[in-house]
Design a protein around this nucleic acid. Sequence first.
DNA 1: CATTAACCACACTTATGAACAGTAGTTTGA
DNA 2: TCAAACTACTGTTCATAAGTGTGGTTAATG
Lengths: 151, 151
Amino acid sequence: MLRPSKKILFAIEAVLDIAYHAGGEPVQSREITRRQAIPRRYLEQTLQHLVRSGILTGVRGPRGGYRLARERRRISVGEIVRIVRALEVGEESPEELPSSELGKQVIRPMWGELQEEIMNRLDSITIDDLCMKAHQSGIVSEVMQKMDFTI
Amino acid sequence: MLRPSKKILFAIEAVLDIAYHAGGEPVQSREITRRQAIPRRYLEQTLQHLVRSGILTGVRGPRGGYRLARERRRISVGEIVRIVRALEVGEESPEELPSSELGKQVIRPMWGELQEEIMNRLDSITIDDLCMKAHQSGIVSEVMQKMDFTI
DNA sequence: CATTAACCACACTTATGAACAGTAGTTTGA
DNA sequence: TCAAACTACTGTTCATAAGTGTGGTTAATG
């Protein structure tokens, strides 16, 4: 019911993967799909939206790939969710499904508020936070060259 | 993505409808479906689960219907959500979709925590709260006989 | 005792949307 | 010139939500 779609999960995984495994080189989409077991052509749609939305930058050509468009601490999970969700639905919902007064005036607003709270929560979580968690969990980055905690 | 299913929405609407329009008489399912525009046979499945789960009590026979099994302030939205969700999925998900380390150890736990926060929030909202909101919104109860705010 | 409405169960259909694959390119950098 | 990102639009598959159908049983009421 309120679990996120795979598309959203994939998007977050991908961004986190790029953040976590980035060395000097950009991360190629096939590396991501290899590590995260995400179908390639499916993921790329999303990646390219993330590029257009200013989360990632794409580097073309051989040895190309993706990197973050900003510092990790300046990218929030909420932002990614918003972007992917906007792309999931076509124009979304003027879906005024006919409802009663109780629905319109009481229940709908309640969900609206809840939704906002959730998004606020997600906005407060940054990719940097997740990277640190990953590090604490002992997940090894495939590239440990000249990251912020330099040698 | 994180909007609730219609079934859940219907269930909450129904319980609220019963709470709000209840006089001395129990509320019949056809009254609910009339006011809330919910298909009758569809709703009844849910109503009966709510009865079995101790949210509602059913009264049979002519002039029968449904009433709340407890005071309004002792029924939370979260409880309703849990009940209906349990019925939506058959056995639910040992769905261990294969995922990467990052997914399993970082992203999954994050959603888990969020989910808990959401449910805590929903547990804190009672049917009584919603009734008061409805009252404040100027929605007229179809029965205003011997409610708490007596004449 | 007939009527009314809740209760029960199961199976079936349909609509919707997520999850992907296909094709056919253009653009850019090594 | 090759490898990769980019663009875009289309089509297919599959799962799940949403809703119907049928055929009952049980318990109050008048």
